[in-house]
Nucleic acid binder design. Structure first.
Lengths: 166, 166
DNA sequence: AGGTTCATGTAACCCGTTACATGATTTC
DNA sequence: GAAATCATGTAACGGGTTACATGAACCT
């Protein structure tokens, strides 16, 4: 893709929300190139308008896969759910369904462990907290619970699919 | 509070997650001071260890309230749910329950409007998307739905409370 | 001919991260 | 007396934001 293509995607889709500003994208692409993770070449064309197309190098693809394969940590669940979801969205095509299901298992386990911690916290401090603080915490807990339900149902979906293929 | 106090809070609580690094906090406090939003004074003490305590100025409190009162936008719902929740958590004590309930109403309305857009998007593009991409989007939708349920039940809680006080 | 879109880039500025530095006080 | 904690800060670096600049191609 070209920098311009990326800009349009980042500007139009809400998912994952990278910056669409040229001051972010073009230097970033150059960094990928100097780092050997991507390679850009000017698209040969009849016109004078140049389009620099980038493509991942093998090293870049390896780095991408390594990012996808990182284990899911407690900290990811607390602060980086959107990043986890983006990794998951890319994972299916890149790592295959078995690995993707494994990711969901890790995600579910971390949620399973973390939700009781939050509930415990709420129980201990509820009477010292203002109503809106309590409710905000409850909102977070319910969000995590919804994600846990989603993860479990997705896991069983992958399992059913696998049994059908076998 | 002092910078050190803030560091401890940011390091220990998961909510809202400001940076706890001194390179972020101390310059930020100085900026608040130069901007006239906070005023810091060295706590008088018998020891030689200095503690600089900060307090909001009237101007700072006004800016804080203005931040809390900002209308809830579609963009907030898409990208800044954690910030919205933090605003809500602070709101109860600072703006009162009536204003807090109004915030919840705006939040619920934005969710109510946005969820069908996402569902529509999913329906249109589901067959062109890989399974994991589809599931990731569904996870987002279910998260929003959970938040909408939470908002509605919180609204009715505030309403019940208000009727009881009347 | 003029406005819009395509397409890439740079420069000033702001600010967070990482890492280091300094010294007082408390704890074992 | 050593280690941990209290408490504040600075410097180098990376990278995003905003705003500006440049020019080609397309549409009317």
């Amino acid at each position: 893709m070209s920098g311009y293509d990326l800009r349009k995607i980042f500007a139009s889709t809400a998912m994952g929300s990278f910056s669409d500003s040229p001051g972010a994208i073009y230097p970033a692409l150059r960094r990928l190139e100097t780092g050997g993770l991507a390679h850009g070449h000017v698209q040969p064309t009849a016109s004078l308008r140049k389009r620099r197309l980038y493509r991942l190098t093998p090293k870049g693809l390896a780095a991408f896969k390594a990012w996808l394969k990182k284990p899911v940590t407690r900290d990811d669940v607390i602060r980086r759910i959107p990043e986890l979801m983006m990794r998951f969205a890319f994972m299916g095509q890149t790592l295959g369904e078995k690995r993707t299901a494994k990711f969901l298992g890790e995600f579910a386990r971390e949620l399973q462990d973390y939700i009781p911690v939050l509930k415990q916290y709420l129980e201990s401090y509820a009477n010292e907290m203002p109503l809106s603080g309590r409710l905000a915490l409850e909102c977070g807990i319910q969000g995590y619970e919804a994600q846990l339900r989603w993860a479990k149902s997705s896991i069983s979906l992958y399992e059913r699919k696998r049994r059908k293929q076998a």
